[in-house]
Amino acid sequence: MTGPDGAEVDTDLLPDGCEAFDLWRLEAFARSRGCVSEPIGADLLISARELVNRGVLHEPRDGWFCLAEQRRVS
Rank of each mutant, 00 (worst) to 15 (best):
P15K: 07
L67T: 00
A48F: 04
D16A: 13
G17C: 05
G63C: 06
M1I: 08
E50D: 14
M1H: 06
D22Q: 03
E27D: 12
R49K: 11
T11G: 05
G17S: 08
F21W: 14
D16I: 02
G34V: 06
E50A: 10
G55I: 06
L26V: 00
R25P: 01
A42I: 05
R72Y: 04
A68Q: 05
L44D: 02
R33I: 00
S32L: 04
G6K: 12
D5F: 09
L51P: 03
S37D: 07
A7Q: 14
L67P: 02
W64Y: 14
T11E: 13
L13H: 06
A7H: 13
P60F: 04
E38A: 10
V52R: 01
D62P: 03
E19Y: 10
G41F: 08
D16V: 03
V73D: 11
A68K: 07
F21I: 03
I40H: 00
D16F: 03
L51G: 00
E27S: 07
E38N: 08
E27G: 06
A48H: 04
D16K: 05
L26Y: 04
I46K: 14
M1N: 03
R25M: 13
R33G: 02
A30C: 12
V73H: 11
I46Q: 12
T2Q: 15
S47C: 06
W24D: 12
F21K: 02
A28I: 05
A7L: 10
Q70L: 07
A48E: 00
E59K: 02
F21R: 02
R71V: 05
G6Y: 12
H58K: 08
D22F: 01
D16N: 15
W24S: 07
L45I: 02
R71D: 07
E27V: 03
C66T: 09
D43P: 01
R54F: 07
E19G: 02
L26T: 00
C66K: 00
I40A: 11
E38Q: 11
R31L: 08
P60A: 04
T2C: 07
L57F: 15
R33N: 00
R72H: 14
R31I: 06
G3Q: 10
